[in-house]
Design a protein around this nucleic acid. Sequence first.
DNA 1: GAGTGGTCTAGACCACGAA
DNA 2: TCGTGGTCTAGACCACTCG
Lengths: 257, 257
Amino acid sequence: MPTSTYDIDAAIPAPERARHIDLARELAQRIAAGDPPVGALLPTETELCHSTGLSRYAVRQALHKLTGLGLIERQAGVGTRVLASQPPTRYVQAMDGLSDLTRYAEGTSFTATVRERLTADARQAALLRSAPGAKWLHLSGLRTSAGALPEPIALVDIYVADEVSRLSKLPKVGQVFGVPVYQLIEAQYGLRVTRVDQEIQGVCIDGEAAAALRVEPGTPGLRIIRTYLQGERAIEVTTGLHPASRFSYTMSFRQSA
Amino acid sequence: MPTSTYDIDAAIPAPERARHIDLARELAQRIAAGDPPVGALLPTETELCHSTGLSRYAVRQALHKLTGLGLIERQAGVGTRVLASQPPTRYVQAMDGLSDLTRYAEGTSFTATVRERLTADARQAALLRSAPGAKWLHLSGLRTSAGALPEPIALVDIYVADEVSRLSKLPKVGQVFGVPVYQLIEAQYGLRVTRVDQEIQGVCIDGEAAAALRVEPGTPGLRIIRTYLQGERAIEVTTGLHPASRFSYTMSFRQSA
DNA sequence: GAGTGGTCTAGACCACGAA
DNA sequence: TCGTGGTCTAGACCACTCG
């Protein structure tokens, strides 16, 4: 039985680092080896206290660490259950805000050429994830670089759900605009976009679009469709048409700790 | 001065939930109000113990929660510093493994038509993020749906860095193949991909590519370039050419708790 | 040297789940 | 009813920072 009086431990120049970390590592290795297999219960806190000679506090710290790693699950009255033998390797693309989605838009501005209220037909309803007959505010325009010679960057369509479309600072036709519309909605209606779905398609730019973007008909491009949702409700949908020569979409996925 | 003998508190039917959570919430509100402004120090643990009547353990639990929220930063010998007045709203696209990147590949198979070792010229070096003259293993082939009539899905090129290219289970020319190459590298060299960079371009599919994919010349498509890195070293690069009619890239970003 | 947060002990009461 | 984990107290020693 390890007595572990505090003075004794203090006299020793410290064995390693924190003991709860050692214990966590040891338990993780045992779990990896399948000692308590997935789905089985780990020893109780009391048992671990006795077997390790540590206090309950230290044992709980170790188990807390394993919980954070997703290795175990704890429930009062039941015990500590093994969830996985290996900490799952996850990869994430993280953003510090939705503005990262449209970072390319920095140094550019949006000029509206169309502003109308529309009632969705069948085709539009599919894009807008709403029932046919639903009302939306529709803006259409051109995004241009803010430099001396304003090169068109993208043809943009913005749809705003009727319930959140009474926005005081919305761009007027012909007006240059800088703020993302979803930010106006969040500010004015006090809600938060909880999810953004994004689809990227390859397209050939023809006809009017080619003329507006000042590229040759048949030029390759990207169509990006973003749906901003609060919960399951789509509150804004944007589509952008980007000439491939002026835009490519890059992202980076990192292994999450 | 709250005496807070344990029996007294126990006799009361529990005020709310855990007291450390109440304290965390109160501190978060104060920080939001700028009481200790960003960059300043919070009261020390001892002061919080006195002002709240809680034990140091409970106070530390509350501060630990705020640390997890990214609101504060702690350092022994210095104190508790306010990092932000609001918990940053982050959005993440999470994957439970890199196979999610190529989920579309399920139910498809890769058939190699080219297998060679190459020495990167200037143009290839840029794609492969290595110096000109570096050696890579190059596979080229077609990804087809596994159904009865094998429709070509994508033209694929795979480049494997020389140091990790001695792979026993690598696809041979003409052979149907199912496992992602990065998994072979991870398994055989005992390393882990820590980052994947991805670029998506819009293209028009012409010439040989159109013939191989059995689409009309001038058909729109997507080119997807993935770079698999361990640390800062690129160990594999893949490019895929997908007809737009058979593939679009979708992703979803969620607000992270 | 005084004070900070990091670690740890040895107790205790509680809500909850299972027998 | 019994044992689980969740919460909490009141002490303690340590490494570290700073004046």
